[in-house]
């Protein structure tokens, strides 16, 4: 079946089998920043923003996003360079192997859109479904809080 959606601002049209998951469809389209860590809805590496909401792409059929807008980490950095949240995670040392990083960035991005000044508890609640085995999460929390500060600073300055 033919489905159409926006992928990081570009119009996509693709022919998928009706049983194809959104994760498979995206990776098949070359959107390999969306990772497959478990195909089971447990790890959060396949998180994308679906109409602004972070969802696990492995738990959706591609057909369900017909007409929707999908954002991945590949669309986060602008022409001026890394998104402040990307820089913040790197500066905080929150990226080790980096396999969970795209999902964490997108889930945290949704948090900061809805709640620009989260506390540590809110960061933990938001990222409850994003597993990381390398960092022990300490620097991920620091990185998201740092990113929130920088985004707030950028808004204040403009």
């Amino acid at each position: 079946m033919i489905i159409r959606f926006q992928l990081d601002g570009s119009s996509m049209e693709t022919d998928v089998e009706p049983g194809t998951s959104l994760l498979e469809a995206l990776r098949g389209l070359g959107a390999t920043s969306v990772k497959d860590g478990c195909s089971h809805g447990d790890c959060g590496t396949c998180a994308v923003l679906l109409d602004g909401r972070a969802v696990a792409a492995c738990l959706l059929f591609a057909a369900q996003v017909d007409g929707s807008s999908i954002e991945t980490v590949a669309g986060m950095a602008g022409e001026e360079g890394l998104h402040p949240l990307q820089s913040a995670l790197l500066d905080a040392g929150a990226v080790q192997c980096g396999f969970c990083t795209p999902g964490i960035l997108l889930t945290a991005l949704e948090l900061l859109k809805n709640n620009p000044d989260p506390d540590e508890v809110e960061v933990r609640q938001a990222l409850a479904g994003n597993l990381c085995r390398c960092t022990g999460y300490v620097k991920i929390i620091e990185g998201v809080l740092l990113g929130a500060d920088r985004l707030a600073g950028a808004e204040g300055g403009s």
Binding site: G44, V55, L60, L111, L127
Partner: peptide, 12 residues
């Protein structure tokens, strides 16, 4: 509800 899954699951 804050204990049900995670935002990734609750959003969908």
């Amino acid at each position: 509800m804050v204990h049900v899954g995670s935002p990734l699951l609750r959003n969908a």
